[in-house]
């Protein structure tokens, strides 16, 4: 069986917001994919389409070869939605037993609790837990049915660094069972460190798709910066290798795919002041891909 989620065009009727605007994406079975984007880039909407919570206005979304709501009905998906909080007046164990009972082939409850790391407070009421504990319980809810696909919408948004790290250990051990994991996040290093593949969304479209390395390269692998000392950036964008120019705090940041050539040329025109040369980070790449002015379809790389 092959898992395919080809998310396509859709524009919200009756409003000017096109949250997901002609999105094409195929995810293979067993992949761990990060969905990156700024607020309002369409991550949550894309996820709601994938899970059949909303229907696309046009285009099609398929989940494991069927319509999303049918795949969900067949118990093939589990999810941790954004801002969801578990219901009060049940214990963790009761909640997970309940969710597991809805699925045709669930994980054994003890295993689901252990995978999510909530075994020790299985007998406590969900409304008496701390924020980090609640996140883990919500993860347990997502995986209790042992679904083919687990979708996590900003799963670590409210966690501190340590809790986040522990959380990712849990998620990776679930993914290692051959399950497909799709998660959205604001934390770039989280995407880089935990996903096989990163999909960058901007204004409802996929603007980059590939490994963390590929995405860094796509934004220009090198980063050269100089003090502008009051001068304009005119001409800088046409230097050899330069693919993008930005000004931050009186310094010009040149993204370049050939740092050597760029530096040599800067020296020749006498513009070297406080020179710094480095490698572009994923954050640099992300910022340039999703800059308010960035044109859609700028980069499209195969995974």
């Amino acid at each position: 069986m092959e898992f395919t989620a080809a998310v396509k065009t859709f524009g919200r009727a009756g409003s000017t917001v096109r949250a997901v605007d002609g999105m094409d994406l195929t995810v293979g079975r067993g992949e761990t994919v990060a969905l990156l984007g700024r607020n309002g880039a369409g991550k949550s909407t894309a996820i709601s389409l994938l899970l059949g919570l909303n229907d696309p206005d046009s285009g099609t979304v398929r989940l494991l070869g069927r319509a999303p709501d049918r795949a969900v009905r067949a118990g093939l998906a589990g999810a941790m939605l954004q801002d969801g909080r578990p219901i009060p007046r049940v214990t963790v164990g009761e909640l997970i037993r309940f969710v597991a009972a809805l699925y045709p082939r669930p994980l054994p409850v003890a295993e689901a609790l252990a995978l999510a790391g909530v075994t020790e407070y299985a007998d406590r009421r969900v409304d008496k837990l701390s924020g980090g504990q609640v996140q883990r319980v919500r993860f347990a809810v997502a995986l209790a049915g042992d679904p083919e696909l687990v979708v996590l919408d900003e799963p670590t948004a409210a966690l501190d660094v340590e809790a986040r790290r522990a959380f990712w250990v849990s998620i990776r051990s679930f993914a290692e069972r051959g399950r497909t994991v799709l998660f959205s996040t604001h934390h770039l290093e989280e995407a880089d460190g935990n996903a096989d593949r990163i999909v960058v969304l901007h204004r409802g479209r996929v603007v980059a798709d590939g490994s963390g390395e590929a995405i860094k390269r796509s934004a220009g692998g090198g980063l050269v910066s100089i003090d502008l000392a009051g001068r304009s950036t005119a001409g800088l964008e046409s230097l050899p290798g330069v693919v993008g120019v930005e000004v931050r705090g009186g310094r010009a940041l040149l993204r370049t795919d050939d740092s050597d050539a760029t530096v040599v040329e800067l020296a020749r025109i006498g513009a070297v002041r406080g020179l710094q040369v480095g490698r572009a980070t994923l954050e640099d790449a992300f910022l340039s891909l999703t800059a308010p002015t960035a044109a859609a379809d700028q980069v499209k790389e195969a995974a």
Binding site: G52, L53, V72, R73, G75, G78, L81, I87, Y103
Partner: peptide
């Protein structure tokens, strides 16, 4: 109030029709 907690959405993505 269950709905405001997002619980109904969570139920919707389980096999419960």
């Amino acid at each position: 109030s269950d709905k405001s907690l997002g619980w109904l959405q969570q139920l919707r993505i389980t096999p419960l029709d």
